[in-house]
Write a protein that binds this DNA or RNA. Structure first.
Lengths: 115, 115
DNA sequence: TTTCTATCAAACCACCTGGTTATAAAAATG
DNA sequence: CATTTTTATAACCAGGTGGTTTGATAGAAA
């Protein structure tokens, strides 16, 4: 379902501290735009634009409640990013461990024979 | 050492498909700029700029080998991003599970009493 | 030394970002 | 109805991105 190109939008969305703070707030539950804007020294349209980028990335979704448009965090996009990173980190760690073992082997081999 | 603001640079670096592909290549081991540029229909300076952004984020480092500047992947920055994402995803999953349980409770409670 | 190879740096471009203000629309409230 | 609240949209601006071409530099190789 979720295209891999989506990673572009997801990582772009995560690259701004304001948007990461909004996500942090949303972890505690749904919030309206005004509620999300409150902690920031920033205009409401600025927050709306941040929300739009989070939405484009699939990291949040919006409901309708009278004039309010409560924003909710969405797990799957968060998972897509985590999965991508985790897979790379895992391979890197394996290679790192292998290199480490190799270096140890070389060192040990050099201890008794002269060349 | 690694500042948390660093997450900005890390996620920005990860938000471009060319840079993610470069990282994917580097997982297999060190590579020179020319080697990294080869698979892409893109000029060498463009690749150099991508590498610079990866380096700024601490995701890669460069050695010197004659005229060559081999690039190597760096684990810790990758880990910083993974950790951030993992922590949020964990809380989200907990809340999700809690909400799920709550909804089940409500449904079960509604089965025998009328209101 | 001259030449070739690998890389970087500068100048330039179109486009996106992150913010602003001002305005409009939609629904609640008086 | 008029007003207030909540949100979105448009127009604008400074600065960053992602690419280009052109030219400089460092080191190997002829």
């Amino acid at each position: 379902m979720s295209k891999p190109d989506n990673l572009d939008a997801i990582f772009i969305a995560l690259s701004d501290p304001t948007r990461r703070a909004i996500l942090a707030r949303l972890i505690e539950g749904e919030a309206s735009v005004m509620e999300l804007a409150a902690p920031f020294a920033m205009s409401q349209p600025a927050i709306s634009k941040h929300i739009k980028m989070l939405e484009r990335a699939g990291l949040v979704s919006r409901r309708r409640d009278a004039q309010r448009r409560p924003v909710k965090i969405e797990g799957p996009a968060l998972k897509a990013a985590t999965d991508w990173l985790e897979s790379y980190r895992k391979v890197w760690e394996q290679n790192y461990a292998r290199l480490d073992a190799l270096l140890n082997d070389l060192q040990r081999a050099g201890e008794s024979p002269k060349n």
